[in-house]
Design a protein around this nucleic acid. Structure first.
Length: 571
RNA sequence: GCGCCAGUAGCUCAGUGGAUAGAGCGCUACCCUGCGGAGGUAGAGGUCAGAGGUUCGAAUCCUCUCUGGCGUACCA
């Protein structure tokens, strides 16, 4: 039987119950309780959980906080989970987990394995996460890595929190950018066949376009060559996009990110196989029916100023081509009405934020599901070399690719670097420092802890020891119990990430869990007592400690896995 | 101009209503010489951009000011 609530919820329920008991007993007036009843105190000396409820109730109850604390504590007897409460001025109730409860959790972690901290918070709701979705006109750059790390980890955390998650990459294969891209590619392709043609105005000058043209020539020969002076023949654009998307997929694969679906923007304009209208036609029909469209200056506008926006937005240009905004409305029609997701999260770079409110309004107008759409913006990465800012632009030519970053520091360090920071935080990424400090990246501190745990289990097995049957009641030392307590926080961290969409909490937790292990592992050295080692002459104690080590390895491995990083057995 | 996101230790950043504001890196001292030293403990280092307000309590919420990034297209 899996516990579906976090420890924090259970303790909170105890406090709520005690408060109601006090009210029933007449020692407290009848007052309303807030949602959050307990928190994790910063100072370990204040217990595992603490409630400031007495302070918050003081006014409405018209009683001194300490008297309220007494009244609640009276109905909070020590039980299987917690010891007797401690009251601390000016009005806190401090609660500590009972020793035998903490010990027992080791057995539970081993029994449940990697899923030990999962929850049912999401109730199986279907969530779709769309992230990266960079234009298929060039390789991914370093900044795209941030979106990949955030989106992918968020998806994992949501899955752990009981949501049914789908990861998706939206391929913008329909817009004007792809026309320019095709023209540039075709120019490079002609150059590969010895023609002296210039790059188009506003084209993509990057060297990768030459590589792409070479690839195309090698695969297809001169099949795409039209008469000189003619525009790119049919298929050039599709071929180029296919090649680029292949590259992007490879890069993200190396980065540890895979998708359930690569969604083509063009497909939004195609009728379905069984004759249903395209998503684009269907979405526009709804808007028209509800009077949200108006023709003006030869273009078709969404009259979003009637829906709370500060201006209207063009849906179909005066030349008849739909805008990117139209595609996005159709895309969200597809997400909500065709595929029926309960919740949709788009992870976007902050340079898209001008697009946020109009998409929310447009989505609401078409699907009525505006509330289920969450647009998560991450601030752009400022690249630096030393103190100098590096300007990135596919069209300007200079790109620091995600591939190059991965090559320099490895996928794990790159991911962790991005995950440590809140999405809303602007990041300076010093390329020189990133390479120089890759060996000091905290990710190795976490992975090293995992490798040491694996090593202890290996060595013990070699000496004929096994965790099986170990009695966890033998584990009473503070550094042993502290390690278990730290593991028990994981379920709360997962729910925190899943509800706030802030993956950095997981990264910081990983460091803290690793610290607890390193401190545990060092304890016997500092005290110079070989009996404090995991593997000792005492067979029963050894087995018990091996259970702790096994559980810690499960917990740490799970954290690394959620962040999309490897959990090495040795380094 | 208007809008969005930020400003916390030397550097890069956590902390979004609770108790003495933290981590990594860098710096100093010490421990341990290992079941893996990519380790442990401690210390120095802070006007939480500034001012006012709300609250029993504010880095956290509100207002204003300053600074930085981004947006404000019939580009995506």
């Amino acid at each position: 039987m899996t516990d579906t609530t976090t420890l924090r919820d259970r303790i909170g329920a105890l406090v709520a119950g005690a408060t109601r008991a006090a009210i029933n007993a007449g020692t407290l007036p009848d007052v309303a309780l807030p949602d959050e009843l307990v928190e994790r105190p910063r100072d370990a000396g204040h217990g595992d959980y603490a409630s400031s409820l007495p302070l918050r109730l003081a006014r409405s109850a018209m009683m001194p906080p300490l008297a309220i604390a007494e009244a609640i504590a009276e109905h909070l007897p020590s039980d299987d989970v917690i010891d007797a409460p401690q009251i601390a001025p000016p009005g806190f109730i401090n609660l500590s987990l009972a020793e035998h409860f903490v010990q027992g959790e080791i057995d539970r972690i081993i029994e449940q394995g990697a899923a030990f901290a999962d929850s049912t918070l999401g109730e199986g709701k279907r969530v779709q996460l769309e992230f990266v979705s960079a234009n298929p006109t060039g390789p991914l750059h370093v900044g795209n890595g941030r979106g990949a790390a955030i989106g992918d980890t968020l998806a994992s955390a949501l899955a752990a929190a009981g949501y049914q998650v789908e990861r998706e990459y939206y391929v913008n294969d329909a817009g004007t950018q792809t026309d320019v891209f095709a023209e540039t590619l075709y120019a490079r392709y002609q150059q590969q066949h010895g023609r002296d043609v210039p790059l188009p105005e506003g084209g993509y000058p990057g060297e990768y376009m030459v590589d792409l043209a070479i690839e195309m020539r090698e695969r297809e020969g001169d099949r795409f060559l039209a008469a000189p002076g003619e525009p790119p023949p049919a298929g050039v654009r599709e071929m180029g996009i296919e090649l680029i998307v292949e590259q992007i997929r490879d890069t993200l694969g190396t980065f540890g990110t895979t998708y359930d679906r690569w969604f083509s923007e063009r497909s939004l304009y195609e009728a379905t196989a069984d004759g249903e209208p395209s998503a684009y036609d269907a979405a526009l029909a709804i808007l028209r029916e509800n009077g949200h469209l108006a023709e003006r200056e030869g273009a078709l506008w969404l009259t979003s100023s009637n829906l709370g926006e500060d201006k209207d937005n063009v849906v179909v240009r005066s030349d008849g081509r739909p805008t990117y905004f139209a595609s996005d409305i159709a895309y969200h029609y597809d997400k909500f009405l065709t595929r029926g997701f309960d919740q949709v999260i788009n992870v976007w770079g902050a340079d898209h934020h001008g697009h946020v409110s109009r998409l929310e309004v447009g989505t609401e107008a078409v699907t009525g599901k505006g509330d289920a759409l969450h647009l998560l913006l991450y601030q752009l990465v400022t690249l630096k070399r030393g103190s100098e800012t590096v300007r990135l632009s596919k069209r300007g030519g200079e790109i620091i690719t995600l591939d190059e970053l991965i090559e320099e520091v490895g996928p794990d360090a790159a991911r962790f670097f991005f995950l440590l920071r809140a999405p809303s935080s602007q990041m300076d990424f010093d390329l020189d420092l990133a390479v120089k400090q890759s060996n000091e990246n905290p990710v190795f501190y976490i992975q090293y802890a995992h490798a040491r745990l694996a090593s202890i289990l290996d060595r013990a097995a070699g000496e004929g020891h096994t965790p099986d049957g170990g009695d966890v009641a033998l584990l009473t030392a503070p550094h042993e119990l502290a390690l278990v307590r730290e593991m028990l926080r994981l379920s709360e961290v997962i729910e925190l990430v899943a509800t706030t969409y802030e993956p950095q909490h997981l990264a910081h937790y990983g460091m803290e869990l690793a610290t607890s292990f390193h401190a545990f592992n060092d304890a016997f050295r500092q005290q110079g007592d070989p009996n404090l080692k995991v593997i000792t002459d005492d067979a029963a104690l050894t087995a018990a400690r091996l259970r702790l080590v096994q559980a810690a390895k499960i917990a740490l491995g799970r954290v690394l896995d959620l962040m999309g990083m490897t959990a090495p057995e040795r380094m």
